[in-house]
Design a protein around this nucleic acid. Sequence first.
DNA 1: ATCGATTTGTTCGTATGTATA
DNA 2: GTATACATACGAACAAATCGA
Lengths: 241, 241
Amino acid sequence: MTRERWREIRALIERDIMDGVLEPGARLPTEPELATQYEAGRHTIRRAIAELAKEGHLSVEQGRGTFVQPRPMIDYPIGRRTRLRRNLGAQGIDVTSEPFGADRIPAEGRVARMLNLSEGSPVIASRRLSHADGVPVSFGTLYHDAERFPDIAERRIGLGSVSAVYRSYGIEDYLRGQTQIHARPARSEEARRLRQHPDMPVLVVRALDRELDGTPLAYGQVIWSAARVRFSINIDDEDAG
Amino acid sequence: MTRERWREIRALIERDIMDGVLEPGARLPTEPELATQYEAGRHTIRRAIAELAKEGHLSVEQGRGTFVQPRPMIDYPIGRRTRLRRNLGAQGIDVTSEPFGADRIPAEGRVARMLNLSEGSPVIASRRLSHADGVPVSFGTLYHDAERFPDIAERRIGLGSVSAVYRSYGIEDYLRGQTQIHARPARSEEARRLRQHPDMPVLVVRALDRELDGTPLAYGQVIWSAARVRFSINIDDEDAG
DNA sequence: ATCGATTTGTTCGTATGTATA
DNA sequence: GTATACATACGAACAAATCGA
């Protein structure tokens, strides 16, 4: 029995992807076909494919096949003024987003602390999924004080960007306060939403937006596809671009 | 036969960890034992264990066993003044680091551009592995202009922190310029260095340090364990703490 | 220092369920 | 409905790493 045959196969397939023998979007031969081609068992093939899928090179779809996946990386600047549309638009990326639910819930723990509200005060949690050039890149929840922004969920549906919603409340400018970033494996439901393989990690970004005088505006948690996004922190730049 | 039994088993083990039935550091029963206990095949058990290991709850060691892993999260602030020791020391974390190699190589591509050197100019690449409270948390490479800092590798061995090395060159202060963050699955060698499971992701941080007048000092790429670190970006704070 | 027992890692074979076209 | 292709599952054997006698 050979030693770590799945690694050899993994490397062979990866080489074919890198060399362009397997073009982005192309379908791999079926697992039994690969098994005979590489003179290995189907388990071994699956292990190699799983590894490549985890790294974002392949996307495995039950009942359809296994496909070579292109991996565009977008660069998302984080700074004093962090604006999704303006920042990505400058890179020639078309950003769209769709709401998928909003709730009026009592603020608890971190949300209450960050928004400077007492535990249990009502907040509006509005959820959105964002696409860049048609591919899902992130989804997340934004929490607002329900007393100050009672109808924010409705306004977010009508108006495109967060900035536009704030302008409708008379807030012309706001700044990004604290931002926290960490990474972890994706839950299966998150992977499904982002249309990425379950083994690909996600980046979790928690952030607080403030008015110019320091008043907390919104606290949010956004899950980003680690395969599709990279963050840039430009501390000096006024516009974070 | 096929009702995703491995997910059930995964959930059962995870519950035992969360409830404290399995304490941090405890060894799980062997795979064959778990197989009989849960009335499943060994493959199914392994699938459940692999998932939990990927999420950082378990650490699997060939020839020894499978252990419940505690997951301390350290908070690493990124700001104008980003200093490993001072920032983590303030959290009561003991930071140590050891060099593991240095080379004099020609600058290429990104390194040359960031350091404002012409392609092929000699740079010193010095590599270090850092521990927080004895656990490896990151390793990476720092690139310096070889003309300006010819013996930086030697000085980094003698002196503890990066700041101390710069002071020995007469540089009293420096600022963090651009920082880029992204996440990806760990290569097996990286996982070994960080003593984390191969399926746990890593965070990749690329950063440029500048002198107060803007002159590039060093460009670095550091791989952080996603299981053990979280980044905080405090844009307003002068000391990023 | 060596051997053997223990435990996880890899591989094969085979069968059956589930999703897609 | 049928065929195709991936997902899950069981069993068995051997390899590799670890540890203690």
